[in-house]
Design a protein around this nucleic acid. Structure first.
Lengths: 321, 321
DNA sequence: CCAAGTAGGACAGTTACCGTCCTAGATGTG
DNA sequence: CACATCTAGGACGGTAACTGTCCTACTTGG
């Protein structure tokens, strides 16, 4: 309705993102301009790099197709809520390799999410259950997004931290990177009080907030945040090795397990063995194995064997054995 | 760098979405215009409804905050991939109430996703595991997005359908709505051959494609697609009732279960009972119960009891009991 | 108080934009 | 085959909008 050119272009972009064909006449009507102007606008979008495809002939029309760069996504309310909920649900147990970008996208979205939608996201979020099996290691999505924001904005970050021995402390940091490996989130940051680089487990962070103080990022001595994390993990020995034998062909098992857990080695035609290192909560691995839908045997570590035994006992009792 | 006004406005919008403060001078530099013009552009964005907040005084700057409507999201490559992967992973087992919007958002995103990113999404998607426990009821995300596109674009839809008795048939339909209830996806559509409204289970749909023929949506006699689905489900009796007793306070159980499964009723201070109806694969419910981390007893239905017993036995054997 | 930032009015030159005319090419239908 | 319906794009003139420069006013933190 507004007669402004840039506004009209944004509106056109939004219309074209609906997965259907738009005849020029209809667009002209909707935008309140002449057909010729629509053609010019389409031209302009193309010059901007958004590939508008036009099918010729009767029954033709315009539509936005895949191009070189991502066009700005124009979402309606429900779609925005769906993405927010989806990303938040995934934040705790996302796919290896996209976790950090996923949190960044969530932070970006939540920055501009209208208040009334925020409500709906929170409600729906409450209706879903965190997949973490009650070991208290769950992470509030807000924690991740606040941290991501401070990293992107180069702002100071303060939070309360509960160390491995249970001791509480308050930290003033310059956040550097979020890294997630093997079902756990870590923050690599420069600790202003310790005057050195540190890694923090995000599930032990509480009450994080941006101080507002901007800083220029220091250089990490190790270069890569993931590398730095790996080194400090080695010192702490936070992972464990496990070994399982499955009564199913290696291909079948491989298809049902996440690739990062490793590749099962065939023993014979009908069984295979998986030996790999895992981090994160052991319960998760146990449940994952339970979902495999084939016979298997856990050899190591003893803790995992114990947990699987407990789970088995509990289920047997539940069935009234 | 000097492009025309609308392009600059889009660029400005993208800069402001980074969660940080931008001083006017820096924006002027980046956009290649004078400081005054930046102020004018900011004004224009505000008039368009995008609330740009400015902090006054030294060390001030601009940033985009939550407003009345969603601004067009400007994503970088990694963020786009992250959202696509997240939505696809969630497509099979999403949160009640946002599923359809989620699929619509995914369709919208994939329509414009550049080819090189498509590759990355596919790769990462392969690395993750479908959560469906081997009953063959998994759904390819593509199937959902194709259907969603035809609904949005009012295009005819053809697909192959495997009926409950295993009979294969080809369908020509005018798609109306996607509905998901209790872990399953359904398509409500007008069947052009049967000349009547039908519901289809999406996990039995294969090889769907848009015919390209546009149509004007008919009116559904029942009015609401969800209502229509409910009625045809009642005829088929696709759900089952279950009853479980937990050895944990009702609040604790409620907090760990999805709300749509129902509310547990307290029996005494330390236990509670849940009686509700569920649909979808029974294995899913069994695994969900296993993750509850407390003792429980399954009373009904017999099938669920049997499945829990099997799972328990398998786990006990796995632990070498 | 000063420095550095936002906010916004006034003015003049330039530019870009828009609608109304055209004509040309593609495509499916009667 | 001709026709209707769509995209594609050149030409043109009047109007409107945009931009940079130069102002002043106000806010905030050191």
């Amino acid at each position: 309705m507004s007669t402004d050119t840039p506004a009209r272009l944004l509106q056109l972009l939004s219309l074209l993102q609906t997965p259907r064909e738009w005849p020029g006449g209809e667009l002209a009507d909707r935008l309140g301009v002449s057909r010729r102007t629509v053609r010019r606008d389409v031209d302009r979008l193309r010059e901007l790099g958004y590939p508008v495809q036009a099918t010729m002939g009767a029954d033709g029309g315009y539509r936005l197709v895949a191009g070189k760069a991502m066009p700005p996504l124009v979402l309606d309310d429900e779609e925005a809520v769906a993405i927010a909920v989806g990303l938040r649900a995934g934040a705790g147990h996302a796919v290896e390799g996209v976790d950090e970008a996923s949190v960044r996208a969530l932070a970006k979205l939540e920055q501009v999410l209208p208040g009334r939608l925020r409500h709906r996201v929170a409600t729906l979020q409450a209706a879903t259950t965190p997949l973490t099996s009650g070991d208290g290691a769950s992470i509030a999505p807000e924690t991740l997004t606040v941290i991501a924001s401070t990293i992107a904005g180069r702002e100071g970050l303060r939070f309360a931290y509960r160390a491995r021995d249970g001791a509480e402390s308050r930290r003033r940091t310059e956040p550097y990177r979020l890294v997630s490996t093997e079902r756990r989130w870590y923050l690599v940051a420069y600790d202003l009080d310790r005057d050195d680089w540190r890694t923090f487990r995000v599930d032990r962070v509480s009450d994080p907030f941006a101080t507002g103080a901007r800083f220029t990022p220091r250089e990490l001595p190790t270069g890569d945040a993931a590398e730095f994390l790996r080194q400090s993990m080695q010192r702490r020995q936070d992972t464990y090795e496990f070994e399982v034998t499955f009564s199913a062909p290696a291909e079948v098992v491989a298809a049902r397990l996440p690739a990062w857990l490793g590749t099962p080695q065939p023993v014979d035609e009908h069984s295979c063995r998986l030996r790999a290192a895992a981090g994160g909560p052991m319960e998760w691995l146990a449940v994952r194995l339970a979902m495999m839908d084939c016979e298997f045997t856990v050899h190591e570590p003893p803790g995992l064997v114990g947990y699987v035994r407990d789970l088995g006992g509990r289920l047997s009792r539940a069935a009234g054995a």
